[in-house]
Computed example of a mutant assay.
Amino acid sequence: MANSTADMRLSGGHPALDLANTVDSRRGRWGPDFLRSFEDLLVLADRLDLVDRQALARLRRQAENDPPKAGAALADALALREAIYRLFLSEDAGKPYPIADLRLVEDRARLGRTHQALVADAAGYRWTLPFDDLGEMAQLFAIKAVDLLIERGRRRAVRECKGSNCGWLFIDHSKGGRRMWCSDASCGSHARIKRFRSRLKGN
């Protein structure tokens, strides 16, 4: 069982969904929460290759030197996480995106876009944030979430894992588009074992 963003599974198939999945369970029970500190957010961004090591070191120093600001940046990321979760949960349910959540994600992404700069790298050019402010971490994930929203007509659907005590979100890349589990090896396996035991009791 995972205990933090350092060892949680990255099953969402997209950074915005992996952020939403930083709550261990959302069905049957809620929690535990893997985002307990700003450092947890940095660890997740590092595992997703969203921020280079120099930027991570810079943000860590800022967080250590200004704990109240780090706490505020974490609170902003948590509010964004819940908005992202509700947006894509509604997609799985075939319902319109909640307007308040859409506006929150849009506002954070819009702010991040104003800070982006075009930089050269080995592959050519790319947009990136300067990462000189702790609030840019939430903005980064908001930009990723907006990108995922925009791609809706060109990608597979986002699903909610139907496993007991799960509720994680993932992009359904299955051939038939009917995948039910965030991970066949975990939630899928648990569901099959539960059905098997239920059949045994019924005999």
Rank of each mutant, 00 (worst) to 15 (best):
D24C: 09
R26N: 10
R27L: 15
R27N: 13
R27M: 14
R27D: 13
G28H: 10
W30F: 14
P32W: 09
D33I: 06
F34K: 08
L35S: 06
L35I: 14
F38L: 02
E39S: 12
D40P: 00
D40V: 04
L41S: 04
L42P: 05
L44D: 01
A45Y: 01
D46Y: 04
D49N: 15
L50K: 00
V51D: 00
Q54E: 14
A55Y: 05
A55S: 15
A55Q: 13
A57Q: 14
R58H: 12
R58L: 10
L59V: 11
R60C: 01
R60L: 02
E64A: 15
E64H: 03
P68H: 03
K69A: 15
A70Q: 02
A70D: 00
A73S: 12
A73H: 03
D76S: 09
D76K: 07
A77W: 04
E82M: 09
E82H: 10
A83Y: 05
I84A: 03
I84W: 00
Y85E: 02
Y85S: 06
L87Y: 07
F88P: 01
S90R: 15
E91H: 10
D92R: 07
G94P: 12
Y97A: 15
P98W: 01
I99R: 13
R103T: 07
L104R: 15
V105M: 05
V105S: 05
E106G: 10
E106T: 06
R108E: 12
A109T: 02
A109R: 03
R110D: 06
L111N: 01
L111P: 00
G112E: 02
T114K: 07
H115W: 09
Q116I: 04
A117M: 14
A117R: 15
L118C: 08
L118P: 07
V119N: 10
A120Q: 11
A123C: 14
G124M: 07
R126Q: 08
W127A: 15
T128C: 14
T128H: 08
T128F: 07
L129I: 05
L129A: 08
P130H: 06
F131Q: 07
D132C: 08
D133Q: 08
G135N: 05
G135S: 08
E136Q: 15
E136F: 04
F141Q: 01
F141M: 03
A142T: 00
K144M: 06
K144R: 15
A145K: 01
D147C: 02
L149M: 15
I150F: 09
E151N: 13
R152C: 04
G153V: 00
G153L: 06
R156F: 07
V158C: 03
C161E: 05
C161A: 06
G163Q: 12
G163I: 12
